[in-house]
Each structure stands twice: as C-alpha cells, then as structure tokens.
Design a protein around this nucleic acid. Structure first.
Lengths: 208, 208
DNA sequence: ATCTAATTTAACCAAGTGGTTAAAAAAACC
DNA sequence: GGTTTTTTTAACCACTTGGTTAAATTAGAT
C-alpha cells in the first residue's frame, strides 16, 4: 500500500491473508494475547514478510479493531437514523444485528474487551454512522409514540439499551450461555433463529 | 496458607492485598495483559514476596477467575432455584444482578472474555449454585404459566437468556453504552436505577 | 531479648517477544 | 530473458516477562 508503485496480484492476496489471520487471532486472544508469529503462521507467511506489510503490531491491531468497531456500531446507527415506524424499526435492527453478528460472532466480545482495556482507542471513531443525530431523532420518535398512546412510558435511552442488550449479549456471552442454557444444542441455529422472537419480545413489552 | 504453621496478622493482610490487586489488574487487562510486577506494585509489595505467597501467575489467576465466575453464576442459580411465583422471581433476579454487578462491575466482561480465550477454564466449575436442576424446575414453571394463560408462549430458555441479557449486558458494555447513549451522565446512577425498569420490561413483555 | 516469620534487596536467568536486517531465492511482469 | 517485486531464510537485537535465589532486614509474638 505504501512503498510499492505496482500493486501486484500476489501482494494484495498476501495482505488480505494477513488481515484475515489478524482478525481471527486478535478476536480470540486480544491485543496482548496475540503473537505476531502466530498471525504470520496463520497467514501462511513468515514474520519478516508480516512486518514488511504492517509496520508493527499496534498498527495492524488498530486497523482490525477499527473495522470491527464499525461493524458493531453501524447497525445501531442504521436503527437510530431509520425513518420507519417505531415497531418496524425495532424489527429491522433485531434482524440486522442478527445477520451481522451471525457473520462475525466474535466482534462484540472483542470490541467491548479492548475498549475496556483502553477506552481511548475509540476517540478517533466517535459519531460513526450518524449515531449522534440519530439518537436525538429516535428519542423524539419514542417520546411521540408515548404521547400518542402507542407505547407505554419509557426512557428512550433505556429502550435503546434494552434493544441492544437483547440483540448483542447472546453473542458476546455465547460460551457461557451455551454451557448453562443450551448444552448439547446447535447454538448457531439457536442464535440465528432468535431475531424474530427478540423483536416481538421488545414490542410486546412497550405496546399498549 | 501452605508453608507456614502460624498465620500471623500481617501475612493475611498481605495476601488479601495481593488478591485485591490481582482482582483489579486481571479484570482490567486479562490474564495475558496483566503483569506480575504491576500486581506486586498495586499490592504495595515486591515481586519476590508475591511469588512467595502465590507460586505463579496461573495459580493466582485461577483463584481470581473462579471467584469472579461464581459471583456471576450464583445469581442465575438463585433465580433458577427460587421458589417464588414467576413475576416475583423475575423481580428478584433483576434486583440481585443489579446489586452484585454494581458492586463488581468488571466481572461480566472479565469472565466472558477469559472464557472466550480458554473455554476449558470452566470445566471444574460446572453445576454451580444448583443451576442444573434449577433450569429444569424453572422451565417447568414457565411452561405451567403458559398453560394457565398467565403469560404468552415463549421458549423458557429464550426468556431466561433475555433476562440475563437485560441484567448483565449494560454492565459488560459500559464503556460503549456510556459513550453512545449516556454521554456526560453519571452512568453509575443510571445503571443502579435500572433494575426495577428491567424487571417490568420483562414482565410486560410476557404477561397476557 | 530472643526466636520466628514476614519482607526487602538485588542480582540473576531462561524463554519469549516485537522488530530488524541483508542476502538469497522464487515468482510475476514485460 | 532480464527486470522488478514478492517471499524466504536465518541470524540477530534489545527488551520484557515470569520466576528464582540467597542473604539481609524488619517486625511480631512470647
């Protein structure tokens, strides 16, 4: 990306291999637990080449983290800026989070944990996907729905946090939930088929 | 604990200091991110003494993890084995989790993350607090409540997972929720006052 | 005061870590 | 086939890390 004029085929493929390996290893072991050697092995290359493409561990991690963080926040932004009617919006975000997290199940745990270790990591990434304005907009919409008697009174932020909790936590807590709740079952299938139930659970809880 | 016949006052205090330091550092940085030197510093002692009381990092970590894991699972066990009527049970667990996690807010993230890195860590800790039998008992109770028309049809495990999600996720995801939902507010206060609302949210969603 | 346990000091070690380097080899490109 | 880029090899480095050791010091208990 930086020091080569011609971007050859093999080179791009290698960089993609590195990123894929980094995604897997970092998500599994975190920044401090991941080893550059392991990432190189997983990418099918050697350490020298890994450092040839990515200056250092921190830079590689930043790229992987930023990408994961966006994947986690964008559905929230999509929900908050969604113009649909409230109940439909709720169905939409449940479905969207379910799709995204089925595809990238390690993201919630990974992002939350690294943010916990170093909250400053997020500083360059505020206001992604229009969350800021969307939040205000959706809060107004919820308060309207309360006024018109469509839903019972509830703090908009509480409702939003409940929606996210129900959508995201089962993925983040998978190893625990699997052990204590869904032992011997296909947790992938369980999680995938949750989306509709979650949306109805939320709607039931607020509608009058 | 091991090599001394007399357990003097100072000794016990030091061991407690070590454990407290270990709880904080491990919860913040995880097993791989924590440094024995940092734990020693935080405990106000030196590395030699740290190793004098705790043979190695792994042993110290195991003790801290097991303790945290139990703190996280016991409320679930208490809920599942609770003899109260269903709605009261739900109010009880919401309140209990809120109290426990207000006191130990780092536990969810810590336990979930370390389980994600090494799921085998839990193997000696299965069936804590009567979760196993309690699960069956509560499932029966929920199915009864459905039959008698007290609540709408729902998979018992889905309901349980929803309860846990709503109770635990806001604590686990605090750095993110704070940033995007409750900016500039006292998140401690917000979390503390959530318990009642959460219980009603759940009850509203299932009652007929 | 004396004996024992708790703690410090300070040096040390082996293994692992992120990262570098230079030269050789392999592959892609024209 | 010659040039350029990609990749490997392999050695190397400085630093960190978990862990150890032995002797000296401090504090507690009786």
């Amino acid at each position: 990306m930086v020091k080569h004029m011609k971007m050859e085929k093999k080179s791009i493929e290698t960089q993609e291999n590195i990123l894929n390996a980094a995604r897997i290893i970092f998500a599994k072991k975190g920044l401090s637990g991941a080893r550059m050697q392991e990432i190189a092995d997983h990418a099918g290359i050697n350490k020298a080449l890994l450092h040839y493409y990515y200056r250092n561990k921190e830079k590689l991690f930043e790229q992987v983290f930023e990408e994961a963080f966006k994947k986690l926040i964008r559905p929230l932004g999509a929900f908050l800026t969604d113009d649909s009617e409230l109940f439909q919006k709720i169905r939409n975000i449940c479905k969207l989070y379910n799709e995204v997290l089925t595809k990238y199940p390690f993201i919630p745990n990974f992002v939350i944990n690294e943010m916990n270790i170093d909250p400053s990591r997020i500083l360059n990434l505020l206001d992604i996907g229009g969350v800021k304005e969307g939040k205000i907009k959706t809060a107004i919409q919820i308060n309207e729905a309360i006024k018109t008697g469509m839903i019972r009174p509830i703090d908009p932020r509480e409702l939003i946090l409940n929606i996210i909790s129900l959508s995201v936590f089962p993925f983040a807590s998978r190893p625990i939930s699997e052990q204590f709740l869904y032992k011997d079952e296909d947790m992938d299938e369980v999680l995938k088929s949750r989306a509709d139930g979650v949306a109805e659970f939320i709607i039931q809880s607020i509608k009058i």
